[in-house]
Amino acid sequence: MSDTSLQQTLPSRRTRLLAPPLLALPAVLFLVVFFVLPLIDNGMRSVIANDGGFTLSRYASLLTDGFYLWIIAQTVLLSAGVTIISIIIGYPVAYFLVRKAGRFSGLIIFLLIAPLLTSIIMRTFGWQVLFARRGLVNNLLVDQLGILSAPLRLTNSPEIAIAALVHVLVPFMVLSIATVLQGIDTRLEESAKILGANRLRTFFEVTLPLSLDGIGTGAILVFMIANGSFVTLVLLGGGMQTLPLMIYQQFNTTRDFGMASAMSMILLVIAVFCLFLQLRLVRRKGA
C-alpha cells in the first residue's frame, strides 16, 4: 500500500520539479529574440561601414571628436544634475513622510504616485503652459506684479527642461529613500542624542549614513531614466543636445543610421553600467 502510493507520488514530484523551469521559457525566448537580438544587430550596424567592411571609425569620432564628446558630456551631466537635485529635494520629503507625517502619510504617498498616472506629454505641456508667453509666470510678472513690461520667452530653456525632468523622476527618489529610512532603528538616533549629539549631528552622523543605500538605489534609478529621457527634451530642450536627442535627429533628418546605432550603443553601455551598480547594491543589501 505504502509502496504504490510512493510510486504514485514519485513521478508527480519529478514533474513538479521539472516542469517549473519550462514555465519561464516562453518569456525568456521572447526577450532573447525581440530584445537581445535587436540590440546585437544594432551593435553590428554600428561597426559595419557603408561599403560593407568593418569599421570602428564611428566610435573613434564619438570618443575623440569634441562635438560628440560634448554631447556625451551633456547627457551625463544632465542626468547627474537631475539626480543630485532629486536627492536634495527628495530627501527632506522622504524624511518627513517616514518620521513626521503620521496620519498624513497615506495622502503623501497618494500625491507621490498620482502624477505617475498622467502622461509624459501632459506634464511637458503643463510646463509649457506655466512658462508660455501668456502663461501663469508671465501673467504674474507682467500683469499682476508689473515687474516686467513685456512677457519673457521662457519655454525652451535648459532650466525648465531640468525642472520637468526632476518633476518626473523625484517621486522615485522619495520612495527609494523612504523605504530605507523606514527600516532604520530609531533607537540608534535616540542613543546618539542621549550621548549628547544635537539634532543636526545626529542626522549627519547617524541617520544620513544609514540611509545611503536608499539614496544610492534612488540615484541609480533616476540617473538611468534621465539618461534615456527623450520626450521632455524634444519639447522643452532649450538647445541642449543629448544622445537620445541626437539619435532622434540622426534618424529623422540626417538619416545616418550607422552613427545613430553607435550612439545607441554608448547610451546602452551607460545603462548597463547603471544596471550593474544596481544589482551590486541589491546583492549587498541581501548579504
Binding site: 519561464a24 518569456a27 525568456v28 526577450l31 525581440f34 530584445f35 537580438l37 535587436p38 540590440l39 544587430d41 544594432n42 550596424r45 538611468m224 539618461n227 534615456g228 527623450f230 537620445p244 539619435i247 532622434y248 534618424f251 543610421f257 545613430a260 546605432s261 545607441s264 547610451l267 546602452l268 545603462a271 548597463v272 547603471c274 544596471l275 544596481q278
Partner: peptide, 21 residues
C-alpha cells in the same frame, strides 16, 4: 534578465527593433 528591459533606454529599444523587425 526578464526585468532588464526596464533599465534600457526606450529610444534604443525602439530604434534597434525597427531595423531588426
Amino acid at each position: 534578465f526578464l526585468l532588464s528591459p526596464l533599465s534600457m533606454p526606450m529610444i534604443v529599444i525602439g530604434f534597434a527593433s525597427l531595423f531588426f523587425l
